[in-house]
Amino acid sequence: MNAPVKARGPLLAILQRDLRVYSRGRSAWLNPLLFALLGITLFTLGLGPDRERVAADAAAVIWVVVLLGMMMSLDGLFKEDYVDGSLEQLLLMAGPVYFAVFGKVFAHWLVSAVPLVLASPLFALMLGVPLEHIPLLAFSLLIGSGILSFLGAVGAAVTVSLQSSGLLIALLILPLYVPVIIYGASLLQAAVEGWPYLAPLLMLCGLLSAVIVLAPLAIGVALKISLDS
């Protein structure tokens, strides 16, 4: 208990704290998961009982549901820190804000997206995706959800000081999600139809690396603007 406090970097400090906060409640990981399950159920009921038709649309359904679930959970990414004042402390710390922001988004991704990826085989079974494509689906969701997290965090940072941010964040972020859903969904469709799918997979990887580097910059600026009002 009395171990000395090591001088860890802000990235690790924030990652550790956020994971600890998330671990004290289950809403952070459970709610997106339940949302995705409900969304898939509703989609399937809407599409009708035709199994083949459901399977044909499975890729789109899974990606839309994951995308919406991620977006809705991102609304709270900075909200609590904004309300309780930790965000001020975060931006006033001596180190660069870049890594602090990165730590926060990464922690949120670990808690909200990884359970979705782990549950994706279940989604696939519900919708009748052939078993052999499940690893590919999970891998593309892993990459794609990273893009969704970092891009969505920009929207969350811009709207954190606003009272009703839920719909606004959707309006800001969903247009930016277009490439992710295009590459993600057609990747699975291509695989199921037996077409090559390397190109969209590489595009997703490329987008992820670009977003990891650039998004924390934009998020840092956005948080400063939000605190400034």
Binding site: V154, V158, L176, V178, L214
Partner: peptide, 20 residues
């Protein structure tokens, strides 16, 4: 800021829709 993020994305969106 949002407009700047959008400008980076506009060509990517166009390319992705074109490819699709």
């Amino acid at each position: 800021l949002v407009a700047l993020v959008g400008t980076v994305n506009v060509p990517i969106i166009y390319k992705s829709v074109d490819w699709w």
